[in-house]
């Protein structure tokens, strides 16, 4: 126990005193209402892989609760908190000032955020404030200044070396495992709060609540296309199958454009990029350019009544059948 404490203390000392010379990382923790967002845990793995000390930054009115959870994560050296309601919804104007101030104060060499709506919103502003280039959506860390990231919608993979003194990274969640939530004991301290004037105001948000797993991180995804004909069929056929499998529901762009499904369900280059173990495409014959968002799935299964449908060319297993018969039958068999 004492040894552990000591170790933590030296970690902090290194983080703050000789930060200019050695590598140290500031990881942004995305949270809402006291719960840490899933993609943050993947980003923390990336932060740890960089090799230096990892300091987490938690902000918002419930920062203290979240900081207590974050402090327990293995491999985190210190946690900085800023308990102000101004940071509750991650409004980039205020949040970026806080991150920039904390980065300068702590002399961090790397700033890591998840490549989520939050990270993509805040980090570009931080990079402007710090006059450094942001490296977006990294999938691999080669060394402390060299990173791998997809470009041209995933058609090419780029390896970039950054010469900036501060590296700002957003991390693709599906490319890194999540950190363990237990086994650490980091110290918690207050961050320097710039308390800048708010330039924007949070009005409200409308979220679609779902009991099913989140599409971005799901192990199984069932996806529906235009073959389902209308929204009633989509709800009646896709959701029971998803529930039986414990899968997330996705939709092709054609299905979303026709109003069969909410656009938070859209899988594809313009929607969510998914990499599940099992991807079942129901009633999708083409729409292949939109399915490029699932190209890293382990197994792709397709159900379509047209045996010549192009989707069968990319699927690992295919079933030629009328989906209105086959899917309910499959749902029953999975349940049994």
């Amino acid at each position: 126990m004492f040894a552990l404490r000591n170790q933590v203390r030296t970690h902090i000392a290194r983080g703050f005193v000789s930060a200019r010379q050695s590598l140290s990382t500031l990881a942004l923790i995305e949270q809402s209402n006291g719960t840490i967002a899933g993609s943050t845990l993947n980003a923390l793995t990336a932060a740890k892989e960089l090799g230096g000390d990892v300091t987490a930054l938690v902000a918002g009115s419930k920062a203290a609760d979240v900081a207590a959870q974050v402090a327990k994560i293995k491999g985190i050296a210190a946690v900085l908190t800023a308990s102000s309601p101004a940071y509750d919804h991650g409004l980039p104007e205020n949040y970026a000032d806080l991150v920039a101030a904390a980065t300068k104060e702590g002399g961090f060499t790397h700033v890591v955020a998840p490549s989520s709506a939050f990270g993509k919103n805040v980090l570009p502003r931080v990079s402007a404030l710090l006059d450094a280039t942001q490296i977006s959506d990294i999938t691999k860390i080669e060394s402390e200044d060299t990173f791998v990231r997809p470009i041209y919608a995933g058609n090419a993979i780029e390896t970039v070396k950054s010469k900036d003194p501060i590296k700002l990274l957003t991390v693709r969640a599906s490319a890194f495992p999540a950190v363990e939530l237990e086994g650490g004991s980091a110290s918690v301290s207050d961050a320097k709060d710039p308390a800048s004037e708010p330039q924007s105001e949070w009005l409200s948000e409308e979220l679609t609540k779902s009991e099913r797993p989140d599409l971005g991180g799901a192990k199984k995804v069932v996806s529906g296309g235009r073959g389902l004909k209308n929204k009633e069929n989509f709800d009646k056929i896709m959701f029971p199958l998803a529930d039986a499998l414990g899968a997330a529901v996705g939709a092709s762009r054609a299905a979303v454009d026709s109003g069969f499904a909410d656009n938070s369900l859209q899988v594809g280059q313009t929607g969510k990029v998914v990499a599940p173990e099992l991807y079942i495409a129901v009633g999708i014959s083409g729409a292949i350019q939109h399915l490029a968002g699932m190209k890293d799935s382990k197994v792709i299964a397709a159900i379509n009544k047209d045996a010549d449908a192009p989707i069968f060319e990319v699927a690992d297993v295919g079933l030629v059948a009328d989906l209105f018969d086959a899917v309910p039958e499959l749902t029953e068999k999975v349940k049994a």
């Binding site: 083409g286 292949i288 350019q289 490029a292 060319e313 990319v314």
Partner: peptide
């Protein structure tokens, strides 16, 4: 679509 099919 064809391009995407070949790529995928």
């Amino acid at each position: 679509e064809l391009e995407a099919l070949y790529f995928l």
